[in-house]
Amino acid sequence: MFTGIVKGQGKIVQLQDNHGTEQIRIASSLIDPENFAIGESISINGVCLTITKFQNNDFWVDAMPETLKRTTFDELQLNSLVNLEPALQVTERLNGHFLLGHVDTTAVVTKIEEQSSSKVFTLKIDSSQMPFIVEKGSIGIDGVSLTVVAVGSDWFQVALIPYTLKETILGQLKSGEKVNIETDILGKYVVKMNNEVVDYE
């Protein structure tokens, strides 16, 4: 489990296909063999993956075909930067919101507007996801916990402060690019239970 508070960034230094599974080598000073172990979970651009091995100070993860299909991982390239967050420890403060690292879908950035030192991003998403996205609610974008500021039939907006723009890869986003989306798990359960009550009646 994660909180959407990115702890650092990593760089893709090697990609190799293993019968449909993408093996990814990431360089980062955040994740090292002295403080992390093989088998631990880590959020990479919002995707929960398992550390499979260390090579020098780099670490490897495997992205299965389902992950490649549902996320932006099929577009990763050498030297791409990624957001990193280690799994939440029970002693840590919950500064963002609960994220499982189970990406629901992707969204496309359609507009970026500057407002003072912040930026407002408009993202287009499949309308089937909109019941889980509410104004003032939480959403995970490439592993970053953000607050939704406006919603439409198939779009929503988030506002990013200078710190988030600087400390995550979201500050490098351009119009037309895709991002990973994880909607709020609590919202999913509420919608599911409400639908079951309606069906029962």
Rank of each mutant, 00 (worst) to 15 (best):
F2R: 08
F2V: 02
T3A: 06
I5F: 07
V6H: 07
G8A: 04
Q9Y: 02
G10C: 05
G10D: 09
G10S: 08
K11T: 15
I12Q: 12
I12H: 12
V13E: 13
V13H: 07
Q14M: 08
Q16C: 08
D17H: 08
D17F: 06
H19P: 00
E22H: 11
Q23A: 01
L30R: 12
I31H: 06
P33G: 02
E34H: 14
N35A: 06
N35V: 02
N35H: 15
G39T: 07
G39L: 11
I42S: 02
S43G: 09
I44R: 03
N45W: 02
N45M: 13
G46S: 11
G46M: 12
V47C: 14
L49E: 05
T50S: 04
T50M: 06
I51K: 07
T52G: 05
Q55G: 01
Q55H: 11
Q55W: 10
N56C: 00
N56S: 10
D58W: 05
F59K: 03
W60G: 00
W60R: 06
V61D: 01
D62S: 11
M64P: 04
P65M: 05
T67I: 06
L68Y: 09
L68C: 09
K69T: 03
R70W: 04
T71P: 10
T71L: 09
T72Q: 13
D74H: 15
L76H: 13
L76G: 01
L78N: 13
N79V: 00
S80P: 12
L84E: 04
P86H: 08
P86A: 00
A87F: 07
V90Q: 13
T91L: 07
E92W: 15
E92N: 15
R93S: 09
L94M: 15
L94C: 02
G96R: 06
G96H: 06
